[in-house]
Design a protein around this nucleic acid. Structure first.
Lengths: 340, 340
DNA sequence: CTGTTAGCGCATTCAA
DNA sequence: TTGAATGCGCTAACAG
C-alpha cells in the first residue's frame, strides 16, 4: 500500500450514468435539463442512477457545449464600503434563484483595476456583468463593454451603453436634501462631492445646483470639493472646506461615510452640529442612525437595487427585450439630528 | 439588409490565431501558458496575432481541457455583516493576483442554504472553497466536503476537515476580555453568545468560562443567551438578559453589532454604560468606534484573515503540502468608553 | 419519445 | 523547439 496516495475519486460522468441506466447520453442530458420530451419511467430510472452514483454535471463541460456559464460578474468599487454589500446580497439572491453564480470583482476605487476586471470577465467566464459604482468614463465603459458579455450598469444614467441601468434618483434626492437645508434656514452650503469619477457624485452635485437655483441661489464651485468616499475622505474634505470657508452653515456629503468624517471634523474644530453646521449624508447605511448626532440622510434601498439589476440581467439573458431599461429607484429623505 | 440583426461577432478561437500566425494550435497554447519551450521569434509572432485579432482564450474550454476553473468559491454567512466584507476583499485581492476569480455565496445564516452552496460549488465550478462563518456542524461540513474541491475553513479549529483553517484566537480573545471586565471590578457578566451554530461563538463562550474560572468564578449557563449576530439580535438578547437578571454589571457580546444592540437596550432601560453596565463587543468594525459610548472590543484583522485563507488555498492548489494548516490570528483588546 | 453524430475551444499526451 | 492526434464532459442538431 502506498502511503496517503488517496486516489482522487474520479468524477462520475454523464456517460457512465447513461451506461449504467442503459440509455443514451442524450437521454440523461434531457433529464438533467428538464426537457419534457421524455417518458416518466425513463426519467425516474435515470434519476435513480444519478442519485445512486452521486452524479453532478460539470458546469464547465456544459458551458463549453452550450455557450453559457451560468455565472454573472459583479463589479463593485469596494465591498467594504457599506453601500455595496446589500447590493451584492440582493444580486446574489436573485441570481442563485435562477441557477446563476456571482463572480465578485473589487476594483478598490481604481479605474485601472476596473478595466482589468472588465477584461477578465470578458474571457467568456460569465454570461453577463453587473457593473456598480463605475469609476470609468462612459466612453471607456462603452469601449470595454464592446464585444463583452451584456452588462447592466448600476448608478449610471442609461445612455445606450449596456443593456440597461438601475439607479437611485441621485439628482432628485440631492435636490430634496438641499431644499431641506434651505428650508431650515441654511444659506451657505459646502459640498463634499465624493470621487470626481463617480457618476452618482456628479449627479448629486447637479441636483444640489438645481436645488439652489430653485431658490434663486447658485452653487459656488469653490464650495465643492471632491473626496474619497470614506470616513477619512470626509474628515479631510470637511477640514479643507471649513478652514477655507469658516462661514459655512451646512455640509452636503456624498455619502454617509463622508458625512461621518465631516461630523468628526466638526467636533474637532468645535463646530456644533447642527447648531453651527448642519450635515447631511446619503445612502442611510447602518451607521447613519448610530453616530451622534444621528445623520439626516437619503434612504436608498440598496438591496432592491441589486435585485433589480440582476433581474434585468436575467431578463436580458432569457431573451426578453421589452423590459424597462432605465429603472430609477426613488430615495427617501430621513430627517435626523444632524440636520433637523 | 435585415434590420438590427447584429450578427454576434463570433469569438476568436485559438485555431484561428494558429492559422493566422502559421503555427500549430499547440504553439499558440504554449505562448498562452508561458511555457518557455518556445523560440522568442515565434512567441512574438503569435503574440502579435493574438493582439491583432483581440483573442481571449475561453476559460471554459481551458477548464474542460485542464480540469481547472481558476475560480474559488467564497461562502459567507452574510455579506452585509461588516465582519465579512473585509475578508472577501482580502481574499479577492490575493486570488486575483494569482489569476483566480472569486465566486461569492451568501448563506444568510441559513445552514440549509450553506449546504446548498457547498453542493453548487461541487459541480466542478471552482478549484477550491473558502468557507467562512459556517453554521453547519463539523460532521455536516465534513460530509459535504467529501468529494468536493479542497476547502479552507475560516474561524473553525482545524480538525482534519478541509485542507486547513484560518481563525482568530476566539477563546484567547474572549478570555482577555473577561479578564478586563473582572479587573475593572465587574462581577456579574451576561453573555450574548451569538448563533448557537457558530463555532466561534462557542469558542468565545469557552474562553469566557476559562476567564471566569481563572478568577475562581464559574459561568452561569442561565446568563448566556444565543442571538442573531445583528443589532436587532443584540437588542432582544440584552432585553431578555437584563429583565431576568437586573443585577448584571457587564455584557459580553458575540460581536460589535450585537454590542450596539445591547447599548441601545441599555439606553432604553435607563442603564448607564459603563457606570451601571459595561459592554464589550468583538471584531472592531467601523461602527465600534462611532457609537456612543464607543465600544471596547477585540480588534481582529479581518482582511488579513481573508488573505491568509486564500493564500493557503492557493498553496494547496499549487501542490504544496508543507504549509501551516492551522493559522491563528491574534486579536487585540481595544479599550474604549463602554468598558474602560 | 429516444438514439446518433458532431462538435464546443482548448490542453495533454505523444512523436518528430 | 514544434506539430498531430486525441479527448475533457456535455449539448445541439438531426434522425429514427
Amino acid at each position: 500500500m502506498s502511503p496517503a496516495l488517496s486516489t482522487k475519486p474520479r468524477r462520475v460522468t454523464l456517460a457512465e450514468v447513461a451506461c449504467e441506466a442503459g440509455v443514451s447520453q442524450q437521454t440523461v442530458s434531457r433529464v438533467l435539463n428538464n426537457k419534457n420530451e421524455i417518458s416518466e419511467t425513463t426519467r425516474q430510472r435515470v434519476l435513480e442512477v444519478i442519485e445512486r452514483l452521486h452524479f453532478h454535471p460539470s458546469r464547465t463541460a456544459r458551458g463549453l457545449a452550450s455557450h453559457k456559464t451560468l455565472g454573472i460578474g459583479l463589479i463593485v468599487a469596494d465591498i467594504t464600503n457599506p453601500f455595496f454589500p446589500p447590493i451584492a446580497r440582493g444580486a446574489e439572491d436573485v441570481a442563485r434563484t435562477a441557477g446563476y453564480s456571482l463572480l465578485l470583482c473589487n476594483t478598490n476605487e481604481d479605474p485601472a483595476r476596473e478595466a482589468d476586471a472588465l477584461r477578465t470577465l470578458n474571457s467568456e467566464m460569465v454570461d453577463g456583468i453587473v457593473l456598480c459604482g463605475s469609476r470609468l468614463s462612459p466612453g471607456d465603459v462603452g469601449a470595454l463593454l464592446a464585444g463583452s458579455p451584456p452588462a447592466v450598469l448600476v448608478n449610471r444614467n442609461y445612455t445606450g451603453i449596456g443593456v440597461g441601468c438601475v439607479r437611485a434618483d441621485d439628482a432628485g434626492g440631492a435636490m430634496t436634501q438641499v431644499r431641506h437645508l434651505l428650508n431650515s434656514g441654511r444659506r451657505k452650503i459646502g459640498f463634499l462631492s465624493g470621487p470626481a469619477a463617480s457618476h452618482s457624485g456628479r449627479e448629486r452635485v447637479r441636483g444640489c445646483a438645481a436645488g439652489l437655483e430653485a431658490a434663486g441661489l447658485a452653487l459656488d464651485p469653490a464650495l465643492a470639493v471632491a473626496c474619497h468616499p470614506s470616513v477619512d475622505g470626509g474628515r479631510k474634505a470637511a477640514a479643507a472646506l471649513l478652514s477655507g470657508h469658516p462661514d459655512l452653515d451646512a455640509l452636503y456629503c456624498y455619502n454617509d461615510l463622508v458625512a461621518v468624517g465631516a461630523l468628526q471634523t466638526c467636533a474637532r474644530l468645535g463646530r456644533r452640529v447642527p447648531e453651527d453646521v448642519a450635515v447631511v449624508g446619503c445612502d442611510d447605511i447602518l451607521l447613519a442612525d448610530m453616530v451622534v448626532p444621528a445623520l439626516t440622510t437619503l434612504r436608498v434601498d440598496k438591496e432592491e437595487i441589486g435585485k433589480r439589476a440582476m433581474h434585468m440581467m436575467l431578463l436580458h439573458l432569457s431573451g426578453a427585450s421589452d423590459y424597462e431599461r432605465d429603472v430609477v429607484i426613488q430615495p427617501e429623505l430621513v430627517i435626523r439630528a444632524s440636520a433637523p
